[in-house]
Design a protein around this nucleic acid. Sequence first.
RNA 1: GUAGGUAUAGCUCAGUUGGUUAGAGCAUCGGUUUGUGGUACCGAGGGUCGUGGGUUCGAGUCCCAUUACUUACCCCA
Length: 459
Amino acid sequence: MKPSIPKGTRDFGPAEMQKRQYIFNSLRLNFELFGYQPIETPSMENISTLTGKYGEEGDQLIFKILNSRIHEHKNKELLKKEFELSLESSRNSEELTEKALRYDLTVPFARYVVMNQHNISFPFKRYQIQPVWRADRPQKGRYREFYQCDADVIGSNSLVNELDLISLIDKSFKELNVPVVLKFNNRKILSAIAEVINEPDKIIDITVAIDKLDKIGKEGVNKELAEKGVSDDAIKKLQPLLEFKGDNRAKVAILQQLVGNTETGKKGIEEIEYLLNNSTPHFAKMELDITLARGLNYYTGTIFEVKANAGTFTPSILGGGRYDDLTGIFGLVNMSGVGISFGIDRIYDVMEELNIFPEQIGKMSTTKIMFAHFDEETQMHCIKLSAELRDKGIACEVYPDATKKLGKQFDYANKKNIPFVCTVGSNEITAGMYALKDMQKGQQQQLNVSDLIQFLKNN
RNA sequence: GUAGGUAUAGCUCAGUUGGUUAGAGCAUCGGUUUGUGGUACCGAGGGUCGUGGGUUCGAGUCCCAUUACUUACCCCA
């Protein structure tokens, strides 16, 4: 059998893991610097927890888990009927699938908050670093299994949380040295637009269409709007939005004209102005993008998206926003939350393309020193030495095979990028002086055990 | 779901208008070197050319089907 792994999944070797962990560690550190606490939730959720939260398209991409032991089901006729119905249309049958792999970390978080509401003191700031699964068709930068690193605050309406997240985004990408543009918008603006042009039912179609502006252009957007049944009159009213150019202030002015006289519009503009006036990103380029919509259904206020600002591969590497009533579905109302999600797999891809991982990352050995030997006796001596070094906190290993060939042992150390090799033969044992070779410099020196330990601690 | 591309050694790929025994680099193993790697030289193993059918005296090469992978669209981290 030829081994393989499912489409859209990947194995990670030691070098990749080192780079991935570099990103994970950096993000985790920042999450904690901002006061977020870690939680984890199961890979699978009850399917009813997930469906209906991501929009029509999103729901289709949920990985469903077939119920176990369906061959033992008591009512097979019912199963057959359910299966046939499932062939007819996109629906979910709990007789067939009652669990699904999580699609994101936000919805499971909302579920967690509702279930643990009596043990949580609000506002609750949590971070979560776990894989999610999407039954998408894989392509460049798109995987079926990938990690999200989420930071959310729930139980606070304050826009200070948005400011906090902007700082977190700014600081995180600064530390990773990834040049980014942080785009933001407000769903209230989008709602107000739908209101103003009298197409409140088409809010999703409208947002999705204008989201594509930079891809398909003004004409493309208009065409799509018409296809979705938006009236000509409404499309005409939308034109200023699609045509304007200018800086953040100019955009606000346009919004003011377009939706400033509606209540939601006014509120949305207020929020946007607050963020523009009070956020202080030093690294990320902050840009109000009034065509930014984001597909997920649950956002109601501020929305965020981050893209790399260099190179040719610039997918969205972070997304987020405010959701006012995600917990409401689970029975806990008046619980507004806001959060962001770093897509570390894409951040990795972007960093790889821009070649901005620090030089040593991916090339460093976690082993500091390897012991080379000549026979079983000298090998045993190495094992004792290694125990002594490990007690002092020095990562070391003994070449596992008994071989007389030093070359082979050095080759192993070299390929593993182990910086030091200590050769232990009978001469060394008798003298109590060991040959320590610096693999990079190629220099060798004789040291006794305590000097060896001291040297390795200092280098 | 829609549209393209690719499929030859463990990996990355050559392979001419269809023509003898299908090649290279890397990797692996061995040797040059029985106490020294990263750089040198020599050698070895490893392929049903994705699968099935067709055209032909002859197919890795042309045609059809099929499967897998991949890219773009949709959507998204």
